[in-house]
């Protein structure tokens, strides 16, 4: 099954969202990402017990930090879906892309450009 999702998204594969740390999310923004979303298994269906729950807490932490430093916490989200649910995956990708479009580019990227100019 091939499902189309917006080409602006770069996927980083991890064995479990429990591996996602706050620092990974922050680094992505530091490097200019406009948004980051973490897609984990449905809650209660983590193969490592609570990896996806941990991920959600870290996403919340990252949100808080991004809010504090003026980047905006809405740029990071956590989604859950069943591993076989391709269409839902694409739906979330579209939703996230819309959200980010509305928010505009990561201010860090703009700051980088200004510096370069």
């Amino acid at each position: 099954m091939r499902i189309n999702y917006p080409g602006t998204i770069r996927i980083v594969r991890l064995p479990c969202t429990g591996k996602v740390d706050i620092i990974h999310i922050l680094r992505a923004f530091e490097k200019g990402a406009d948004g980051v979303y973490v897609v984990g298994c449905l809650e209660g269906e983590c193969r490592f017990e609570n990896g996806n729950l941990q991920a959600r807490k870290r996403v919340d932490q990252a949100k808080m930090i991004l809010d504090t430093i003026g980047i905006g916490g809405e740029r990071v989200w956590m989604y859950n879906l069943s591993s076989s649910d391709g269409p839902r995956f694409a739906e979330y990708a579209v939703e996230m892309t819309e959200k980010i479009k509305e928010l505009g580019p990561n201010p860090i990227k703009l700051a980088h450009k200004k510096k370069a100019a």
């Binding site: 620092i23 923004f29 530091e30 930090i65 504090t68 430093i69 980047i71 700051a111 510096k115």
Partner: peptide, 21 residues
């Protein structure tokens, strides 16, 4: 080490955003 990394990243972005080097 982990918390140092997080704080450093957050501060870097903050200052960058503020236009400070």
């Amino acid at each position: 080490k982990k918390e140092v990394g997080i704080l450093a990243s957050a501060l870097r972005m903050y200052f960058m955003n503020e236009g400070k080097k």
